[in-house]
Design a protein around this nucleic acid. Structure first.
Lengths: 132, 132
DNA sequence: CGATGAACAGCATGTTCATCC
DNA sequence: GGATGAACATGCTGTTCATCG
């Protein structure tokens, strides 16, 4: 309630997309902000998607507000003794993360369906399972 | 050049999506604005996507500016003699439309790939080709 | 009330600036 | 220069208002 504005329900927003990746990346390697960004840029370079640092930070801050992530300031390994911000799940955060991931899965599949439909509708494809 | 702002290259925008549908719908049935909207809403209801009338009009106006569509004001069939705006391709418009469609196909496939990748990356799916 | 538009408003996101090491 | 943030600017898009028949 209290929403001033409703979404028309088109494709998912970049922010949500990034939050999902932040969670999964936290489950796997422990990384800090800019490294997460680098990793994502590498992954999506072939797709022409190049997120900027602000969006990544905002996604991380969102997750902190949601109680999904927690900051851990540590010295960067080797090099100079610069402090960087790593992330981990606080108490109950992992469960919230899994819930979020479940929701995003539904959302991603919805988007995939919509895009497939658009390809079908506009280019007359009929997903042949028996193509030579 | 002259772009004040660059896209990070995330998913395609609703406007482009609608423009594509407007073109295809113009190739098929001749419809006017609000009927196009109704048709789209019907099609995408199962997906929870409900475009609003402004976006549809803006998409149509964009296509007119692009020289892809042309307005044809006609009396609405039956009923009262209210004038509605139908659309057709002006000279050279059909070719421009086909070009746009070709571009959007690439874009839609790019988005599909990104979404599939996200599902793989975050849920560890491996597209089984042998599912019952 | 249906249809078409345009003005307006709010939110998503890209760019720039500030601070610290 | 790398890293983190916040402020600022722009643009996409949803809501509202105006006009016409």
């Amino acid at each position: 309630m209290g929403d001033k504005r409703t979404s028309s329900g088109f494709l998912l927003k970049q922010r949500a997309f990034l939050k999902l990746y932040m969670i999964t990346m936290t489950e796997q390697d422990r990384l800090y902000g800019l490294k997460l960004l680098d990793a994502l840029r590498d992954e999506f370079r072939p797709f022409g998607y190049k997120p900027n640092h602000s969006e990544v930070y905002k996604a991380l801050h969102d997750l902190i507000e949601d109680g999904v992530l927690q900051q851990v300031k540590r010295k960067k390994e080797g090099m100079k003794l610069q402090e960087v911000v790593y992330y981990r799940f606080p108490d109950g955060g992992y469960e919230k993360a899994q819930l979020y991931k479940r929701q995003l899965k539904v959302e991603l599949e919805r988007c995939e369906s919509m895009i497939k439909k658009a390809i079908r509708d506009n280019y007359g494809y009929v997903e042949s399972a028996t193509n030579p």
